[in-house]
């Protein structure tokens, strides 16, 4: 149980998917202009990541069984594409407002490197089923954390006096860099001491 907590903590803070691993940057930069949309996107992504982790765990087992591991990239991305279609339908039914707010960014979750990334990481690290589940979910949480922090700051930036060249993505990237620097502090964590291992 504790090692699952350690895994989760690591994924959310120490190797944050966006700020340390550079996964999920496109939506991170693209959707973070408004806080509510960011949160909605974060939830959608977390859901997809968790489901994708679970399903690709099974797919990997199948691939190994039939000795066709070279089909991993194709099969994983197809699973994710189907999953995103599915989530799109759910959101359209459940919350049309959110659906409209997310707009084109919803189908773009398919191309979110973080989703495909976590699926591959789970396999490469040889995680068990429960570890895969925890890692997938935590990866989603790490995305939410990063994007919400970022969106909060970006909303402020809208009103800041900036040189024209800096407006938009340049200043956004620099802010992201500063947040990433803050998160670097987490890598000093003595997890053993914190969790009493």
């Amino acid at each position: 149980m504790v090692d699952l907590l350690v895994l989760s903590f690591s994924t959310i803070f120490i190797s944050n998917f966006v700020l340390a691993r550079f996964l999920g940057i496109c939506p991170f930069l693209g959707v973070s202009r408004k806080l509510e949309t960011s949160l909605g996107m974060g939830f959608a992504v977390t859901f997809v990541m968790t489901m994708a982790s679970v399903i690709t765990y099974g797919v990997q087992k199948l691939l190994v069984l039939y000795n066709v591991e070279f089909l991993r990239t194709i099969s994983f991305i197809l699973v994710i594409a189907v999953l995103v279609q599915f989530v799109e339908m759910i959101i359209k039914k459940a919350s049309p407002v959110l659906y409209r707010a997310l707009g084109i960014y919803l189908p773009l979750i398919t191309t979110n490197c973080a989703v495909m990334g976590v699926a591959i990481i789970n396999v490469d690290e040889g995680y068990s089923f429960i570890q895969t589940l925890v890692n997938g979910f935590s990866a989603g949480l790490s995305f939410i954390l990063a994007i919400v922090l970022f969106a909060g700051l970006r909303e402020r930036m809208e009103f800041a006096p900036l040189p024209k060249a800096m407006k938009g993505f340049p200043i956004a990237l620099i802010i992201a860099g500063l947040i990433s620097m803050a998160f670097l502090g987490f890598s000093n964590f003595n997890l053993q001491a914190l969790f009493g291992l």
């Binding site: 700020l19 990237l173 860099g177």
Partner: peptide
Amino acid sequence: LPPGAFITLGL
């Protein structure tokens, strides 16, 4: 390091 990537690209 990661922050450097963001900042350098931004600049």
